[in-house]
Design a binder for these strands. Sequence first.
DNA 1: GCCATTTCTTAAGCTATCTTAATTTTTCTT
DNA 2: AAGAAAAATTAAGATAGCTTAAGAAATGGC
Lengths: 172, 172
Amino acid sequence: MATIKFSKTKKVSKGDLLLSVGDTTLYAYKVESGCLRSYVIDNAGKEHILQFAPEDWIIGDMGSYTNGDPSTIFIDALEESEVSFISAADFRDFHSLEKELLVEMSIKLRNNVIAANKRIISLLSATAEERYISFTQTYPTLVQRLPLKLIASYIGITPEYLSDLRRKMAKK
Amino acid sequence: MATIKFSKTKKVSKGDLLLSVGDTTLYAYKVESGCLRSYVIDNAGKEHILQFAPEDWIIGDMGSYTNGDPSTIFIDALEESEVSFISAADFRDFHSLEKELLVEMSIKLRNNVIAANKRIISLLSATAEERYISFTQTYPTLVQRLPLKLIASYIGITPEYLSDLRRKMAKK
DNA sequence: GCCATTTCTTAAGCTATCTTAATTTTTCTT
DNA sequence: AAGAAAAATTAAGATAGCTTAAGAAATGGC
């Protein structure tokens, strides 16, 4: 099967910032090993995690790639990682992609839509505890690998409250 | 420009249910006029609106179309509407689509990803008042057309609280 | 192996948002 | 236009989840 053509890989260290809000040189990243995340910082200075990207995931700011605007998100490395690059143009001009690549891209986009919708439903209708349980079931390996405060940020609660929840859940 | 091939249109009345949870006969809908919505019902019996689909939007349960599972959402008409149908197969087997159609589909999927991510960030980081203001700016026509309680459901708050917010905002 | 840094825990008080319920207003039906 | 149904408002009391702050535990660098 044809596959999206990526640059050769590059090693990045834990904490390295690969994309900042305002950046105009835009790439998406495919994670070969390790784990990246994308996040935003709100008016109150708080971080909110949009996506974790462990091995084999693609991460980037689709909105910016599409319309050419500066990035609205940050991307950094949560672990030592190896990544390859995909140019923004591949998201902007679907016509220029070969059909095979376009099919592959469509599948990734479709999966992204499905995952995003699930998360929206979860944020709209589930309690913090339910969202945490659901996270542990959906991403069991990430629960092991990532610090609690990042998981709290992803499910939309404070680390203190997640710590509380864990204790209450353990008591049952 | 080529366009995804839809069936001829059909009129539906306000309140008509086009898709139910558990349905296995699956179509997505393109709205020619009027407005549809998709929603889920949680354990406590409460509705949560996933999407509004006014003129020219496509609405459906991508997850089910993809893997052939029964629908996980409801879709109904919020107004007298005219819709055309698109078969689930078109989401499932991208290979069989002509390239032009695939490009069009990819663009719709990409826009869907962008919109979904915006909504996730909003749910994670904005207060109810901020989400309401943002909704009125993003969908000014829907604010006119739809009852308050549906907007409340979409932004993830109760109608009573949205009513409160409106009053407080008016006082300023 | 030690010190610094980061992460996690705990707890008390606080606030945004919800629940319930009753009333009013608007919209729909005939 | 009247009556019924749906939507919106208001208000009081409840609660999930937040804030702050301080201490404990774990991790990482040298």
